[in-house]
Amino acid sequence: MSTQSRSVHRWKDDPVLTVEHMSMRFGGLLAINNLSFEVGRGDITALIGPNGAGKTTVFNCVTGFYKPTEGRIVARHGTGAQVAAVEHATTKGKRWHSTDAGAVFLLERMPDYEISQKAKVARTFQNIRLFSGMTLLENLLVAQHNPLMVASGYTIGGILGLKSFKRAEKAATEKAAYWLDHVGLIDRADDAAGDLPYGDQRRLEIARAMCLEPLVLCLDEPAAGLNPRESADLNLLLRYIRETHGTSILLIEHDMGVVMEISDHVIVLDYGVKIADGDAAEVKSDPRVVAAYLGVDDEAEIDVPEVRKDLIEVTGRTKKGAGDE
């Protein structure tokens, strides 16, 4: 099932996030089957696939909302694969391990809130989850909860009105203003988030996630429901985030235009298994991807034996009419 051998890929050498042999089972349904991939440091990586391929499930596992049935998910601060540190944490039963070279985090062992707080993996949601009754500014301040908690002396200092907390709060507001400015929403800072139009809400959610200063930003269909101009703006924003803040981006996307234009690395998922992995050009020409995306009406038309084998293995049946978009 591997296609990587065709060229040298830098995400192999310096992965900020790796998913290793991950499976996720819901009752009798195997949603993800033995999935492995790497997200390169500083790359924009796209996770694509037809509806129901398991993309959002992968996100939920990576960000701790689901515990994968099997497998290992590693986030790395600092450069390189840090194999020794990962092995050390795994065998010693630790959730994370820091060395001089950086730190590794075994995400499948961490609760969801620690993943964004400690491992610095942030996310957005497919069906936007803003705090709609709070203002834009408040939304971005909530995202800075943990540093502000420390600055407020776990509330006690805040009640007493410590100077240092005032300063921290001012800095937090400035950071919020910075991101509001960069997503073009600074003029609406004091409006309720629920009052924003759809496209703005998407951008606000990205801004909110960026307030966590993440190393990896996971975006679940950020371009869904956007018009072409908003979509182009989004591309610019993502590039800006990557270039200015060095954040690696992992995104789920349906819009092939967006994917092919900005992605350094594309992973294709179908029925919970990886069917292609490579740069945009490689993936585009992969026959299995074409089959998965264009759909095949009839068993006889599946002309890639591996696909059929994979599908039968995963679903216990042959594929019918899937991926019709």
Binding site: T63, G64, D112, R129, L130, N146, S152, G158, I159
Partner: peptide, 28 residues
């Protein structure tokens, strides 16, 4: 006072959307 502190804002955020809170590193 608490409403204007991170803890109070986290309470209100919790009321608005618990899952989003968890994604933002808040120990719910």
């Amino acid at each position: 006072r608490l409403r204007r502190l991170p803890i109070g804002r986290a309470w209100e955020a919790l009321r608005e959307d618990e899952i989003a809170c968890r994604s933002l590193g808040i120990n719910t």
